[in-house]
Nucleic acid binder design. Structure first.
Lengths: 338, 338
DNA sequence: TTGAAAGCGGTACCAT
DNA sequence: ATGGTACCGCTTTCAA
């Protein structure tokens, strides 16, 4: 007499399927997890009965006994920032190929919330990707000690990470500007704490100097459209004739500010963005440094899945996403006003 | 002698805490779920020991015995569409207030993938919100029969839903245009299958006709920036002097197309968007119908949480998100070219 | 107020 | 090839 495990009505359990098929729970289980151990006909019978009964596997229960959840998590500082959706999209897609589900956490730019999220999620996931994490190195290491972690745009030795390396794109951009006669350029910076900002600033200064250009750095509090628009007067006063912006959002704000002052882009001023997330939707279409978001997401899942599979070599992997300049219409030959 | 449950090393279980505190597993459990049943000092002691040991509750295990998961899911057709991030953000925020985690599913505009996602998620969530679902009514009803569901921009009687009602905003927009002398307007349509599109088209036609204006409808395949830009010649040929676009993305494409033809906005042509997701970042800043994304997300979580709490009245709720016109700079007095 | 024990839905080892 | 059974971590009666 098969034990009748109760459970909520309407929920079909493995036991129900087993009973209906006249087999034991173990056999029913194997029909799904290790079909190779069963007679093909048994497998078929169980499968069809399960299907007919509307059975669906309880992942929580499976997780409890296997220790594997079939879930991933992505934590981003702000899903509203256009850099992240393409990234998240790729992670979804990658997870989907191996039938993993993905939790999304929005830390709202707060390290505290980020830590809370991770704690909340940690016992239902097999691994997580931390995009532009705001947490301290120690916090991150503590998490990585517990389970597979892949960092995006954060460079911690010993932890798998994917970094968007803007050096290539920046060098191209600087070369492009120089070729068009610019000698004075500016860099409108992002948030100091961010790894991306540090890397971008350094690349622009290095490439600019190497090319013999004067480069002025303008600080921006929040890298928002408004803040960027408001910094335009300082920008034109700097004497620069071209600017490389921390990201596309900032670049677009600059475009708006320039337009508001009646300064024509690209005739009187040139603007280069970064990330290529706004594509050709700006006015004029933005010349920008491309190669980031989606590619990073793709690389991150791939890495994470390898880590989860216990592939050890993936532990200290550091993948670098190359970038290049996409020329659209916001850069022109130097043309000093007045 | 307390039973030593093995488990993975590094993972602190309730049993570990109980042993350390010299109490039974039941007591340790109650310290978290029903502290009122225990001596305050016992609770404190267990809490502090748990904290010191780095204990964190295993939600999967709890779910197995309670039937509640503490997880939600949001399914969107495309997280890359700027309409959704604000929506998702609000859902995250709402879930956070009750310590729920949220799964994100991106159906990639496919009903099939959407159904797969739901199946994959259904046994680890307490409820889900389906945003702009592409599934058939039957599919949705089948899911809603199983667990709490809130629909966004899909109107199915008997299922909780939040609908962005553009009527108010559209009426204001039409009035605004009429007041500025426009007599000939166009509506650039979105994807026919979508509930939003049907509602928007109908509202524009109705309000336009009521105001005594001529309204031409222009079909657009995909509501993309490019498609919108390409339809501009048809738009100007239509004889209209102003256009209401399916959404802000389309409106921005129209802006780009108009600019490319040397047609000045708003002097020669007026453009009204919908959703207010691009805010003031367009050139010129877009006059648009606002009130959608974030508010819808907010209403949806609130509703879903109520449903999960077993609040029955929330079952057939239908909340309507009002809209209004936000005047920026893309609409002007009529001014026929030539 | 606290403890013992059963059970949630699976998996996996040990038999047969 | 299949069945019996212990166990994953936690909650929840039922007793004490």
């Amino acid at each position: 007499m098969a034990r009748r495990r109760s459970g909520q009505p309407g929920i079909v359990t493995l036991q129900d399927v087993a009973t209906a098929a006249g087999v034991s729970r173990s056999t029913a289980s194997r029909a799904f997890s290790r079909p190779d151990l069963l007679l093909p006909e048994t497998v078929d019978r169980i499968h069809s009965i399960a299907h007919r009964m509307g059975y669906s596997l309880n992942h929580a229960a499976r997780a409890l006994s296997t220790g594997r959840f079939g879930n991933l998590a992505v934590i981003v500082p702000d899903i509203g920032n256009p850099f992240f959706p393409p990234l998240v999209r790729k992670i979804e897609a990658g997870a989907d190929t191996v039938d993993y589900a993905v939790f999304l956490g929005d830390s709202d730019e707060s390290a505290v919330r980020e830590a809370t999220l991770v704690a909340r999620l940690s016992n239902q996931i097999d691994g997580l990707v931390l995009a532009s994490s705001r947490m301290t190195e120690d916090q991150i290491r503590a998490i990585a000690a517990t389970k597979p972690v892949v960092l995006i745009n954060r460079d911690l030795a010993g932890i798998a990470r994917v970094l968007v390396d803007v050096k290539g794109g920046v060098t191209e951009a600087v070369g492009h500007l120089k070729r068009l006669g610019h000698t004075d350029i500016a860099y409108v910076a992002g948030p100091r704490e961010s790894w991306s900002e540090q890397q971008r600033r350094q690349s622009v200064v290095a490439a600019g100097t190497a090319a013999g250009l004067t480069v002025t750095v303008l600080e921006l509090g929040r890298p928002s459209h408004e803040a960027a628009r408001d910094i335009v007067s300082a920008l034109v006063d700097s004497g620069a004739t071209a600017v490389i912006a921390f990201d596309d959002v900032v670049a677009q704000g600059l475009l708006a500010g320039l337009d508001a002052r009646g300064i024509d882009v690209p005739r009187e001023f040139s603007v280069v963005g970064c990330d290529d997330i706004l594509a050709a939707t700006t006015q004029p279409p933005l010349t920008t440094i491309s190669g980031g978001s989606a590619a990073a997401g793709e690389a991150a899942v791939e890495l994470l899945l390898r880590l989860i599979d216990g592939h050890p070599a993936a532990g200290d992997e550091r993948v670098s996403i190359g970038t290049h300049l996409v020329v659209r219409a916001s850069v022109g030959r130097v043309n000093r006003r007045r």
